[in-house]
Simulated scan of single mutants.
Amino acid sequence: MKKILPFLLLTALLTTACNDDNANSTLITPEGISGKWNLVNQRGGFQGHSLDFETGEVVWTFNSENEIVAIENNSEGTDGINFPTAIYNYSMIPNEVSPESCDKTLNIEALDLGCINMEGNIMTITPVGADMYTLTFKR
C-alpha cells in the first residue's frame, strides 16, 4: 500500500500539471491561422446585430510569414467590422484586457479584434472588450 500511494500522488500531479487553463494560446499559432478564411457571420456590437455572409462574399487570407492579411470584401453592408478590400498588417499582441480568455489577441492595423479559437475548419474571433463583434470564419 505504501508503494501505491506515491504512485497515485505522482499520477494525480502529472495529470493536473498538464492541464492548460489557457488552451486558446495553442490555437493561434501562425500555422493555424495561415490560409483563406470565409467570413460567415458577425454578431454583437452595441445593438446586437447578427449578419450572415455567403461563401466568397468576405474572404480573409492570412500570410503568417509576412504578418499580412488580404481582405476581399464583396459585401454591400456597412454594419459591424467592415474592412474594405485591401492588404493589412496584423499581429498577435498580449491580451491585457481579460488574460483569462486568451494570452494573445488578433490586431489588424491596431484594431484589437479579440481572442482566436479554432476548431476544425471553423475560426471564431471573440472580442475581449465591450461593443465589439464576434466574427465566425470557415475554411
Rank of each mutant, 00 (worst) to 15 (best):
E100D: 14
L135W: 03
M118K: 10
Y133S: 07
M132C: 09
L113F: 10
T124Q: 11
I108M: 06
N121K: 13
N117I: 06
E109V: 07
D103I: 05
I116Q: 00
I125P: 04
M123P: 06
R139F: 02
D103Y: 05
R139N: 06
A110G: 09
I116K: 00
S101H: 10
D112A: 10
K104E: 12
E100H: 14
G114Y: 04
C102M: 03
Y133D: 06
P127S: 03
S101R: 13
L106Q: 01
I125W: 01
T124V: 12
N121T: 11
I108E: 03
F137E: 06
A130L: 14
M132P: 08
L113N: 01
T134D: 07
T105N: 12
L113Q: 01
N117P: 01
M118D: 00
K104N: 13
S101T: 13
E100A: 13
F137G: 08
M123N: 04
N117E: 11
I122Q: 12
C102V: 00
L113G: 01
L113S: 02
P127Y: 03
K104F: 13
D131F: 14
T105V: 15
I122P: 04
A130N: 15
G114L: 03
T105P: 08
F137Q: 07
G129C: 08
D131H: 11
V128A: 09
N121V: 09
L135T: 01
N121Q: 14
T124K: 11
V128E: 13
N121L: 10
E109H: 08
A110D: 15
T105C: 09
I125M: 04
D112H: 08
L111R: 12
A130D: 15
M132Q: 15
C115R: 03
T134K: 10
E109A: 10
K104Y: 15
E119A: 13
T136L: 07
R139E: 03
K138N: 15
M132L: 15
K138Q: 15
T126H: 02
P99F: 02
G120I: 05
D103S: 11
C102I: 02
D112K: 10
D131R: 11
C115N: 02
R139S: 00
L106S: 00
T134R: 09
V128T: 15
I116D: 01
I125K: 04
M123S: 04
E109S: 10
E100W: 12
Y133W: 09
L111Q: 14
E119C: 08
A130E: 15
E109L: 05
T124R: 10
C102K: 03
E109Y: 06
K104T: 11
G114W: 00
M118V: 11
I122H: 08
